[in-house]
Design a protein around this nucleic acid. Structure first.
Lengths: 166, 166
DNA sequence: TCCATATATTTCGGCTCCTAAATATATCCT
DNA sequence: AGGATATATTTAGGAGCCGAAATATATGGA
């Protein structure tokens, strides 16, 4: 048993290639490592957020609202954090229940809603951010400044590659 | 509005540092790029899997079972794919309902369950894998073999950094 | 004006994810 | 043997995720 959580070895991938000849070993290796590391990074952030009554998604919403104190619409927040409008409804329900945001009907367009930050939301952000930046610094301490630049650039190329799929 | 989905610019991060002096700009930049790319890669895979009646998690379970035709326990599958046992129960419910796996009580230990692959599960794997490997190759075509090695190595360092957090 | 079409948000049903608690079975110690 | 403890899995309850359908409101043209 060795796939995914324990990433497959090069030899295992070579063997799989006998069955699936279009399998590109170095490509799959890097891709699985990316999936795994991204998942672990997100899980680690999620744990820190949970200690302060937030989730990664609610945190992202509050970050956006901190920069836009006049409020944003649910659809802007959905686009800004990468989820569907239907999902954002549920996230905002939780944030509103906890007193982190306020929903108001927009003055001009009665279909639209304006979501504004509430003091509790900004307080949670202030409570969670210093520790968050500490943790990021700790994780990235394993890489030199030059290596961080390289990593950022290579991930950018992967993002470009992903956009070619659609 | 620019955070997270549109990653913040270097200037925006410099500005944030006035407020949070422990913010390490190159670290946060690389970390956010990692979160974003990992999420996009997973979402892209998820879409491909969905076209064949699978999810990323159910796919991972089937991959593990393909290499272990004699079956694995729910807890082994949970550990192998990185979720809790409680979550694995639900994943297996779906897979069993769809005829992709079979659950049997273990002969020796009546608490334990053995999950075995069923023909439908292996058929779905065969249907999904060639296209999957094609997609991975397409995404990674943006990187040279040398760059892929570098990316894998750098992500490995990030994983090490993550393990220092706990 | 009034209807068709477009837009903003929510609701609904299904899957996934978690922790904590419940259930069933093993095992170890006296 | 019998009871405490440990292990394997499931259940319960809450959050988040989606696409599709429902609801409410705007807007543009006949």
């Amino acid at each position: 048993m060795f796939e995914l959580r324990d990433l497959p070895s090069r030899e295992a991938l070579e063997k799989l290639r006998e069955r699936y000849e279009n399998l590109d070993v170095t490509a799959v290796d890097a891709f699985l490592r990316l999936l795994r590391t991204g998942e672990d990074a997100a899980a680690s952030m999620e744990r820190h957020m949970a200690a302060h009554g937030l989730s990664l998604r609610r945190f992202s919403v509050l970050i956006l609202l901190a920069r836009n104190p006049d409020g944003l619409s649910p659809s802007q927040l959905a686009a800004g954090t990468g989820v569907s409008c239907a999902t954002m409804t549920g996230v905002l329900d939780t944030l509103e229940r906890d007193g982190c945001v306020v929903r108001e009907h927009a003055a001009t367009d009665r279909r639209a809603v304006t979501v504004r930050p509430a003091p509790e939301g900004m307080a949670r952000l202030d409570a969670v951010l210093p520790g968050h930046y500490d943790r990021v610094a700790t994780v990235m301490a394993a890489l030199s400044p030059q290596e961080r630049e390289t990593l950022t650039a290579l991930l950018g190329k992967v993002s470009q590659g992903l956009s070619r799929l659609s």
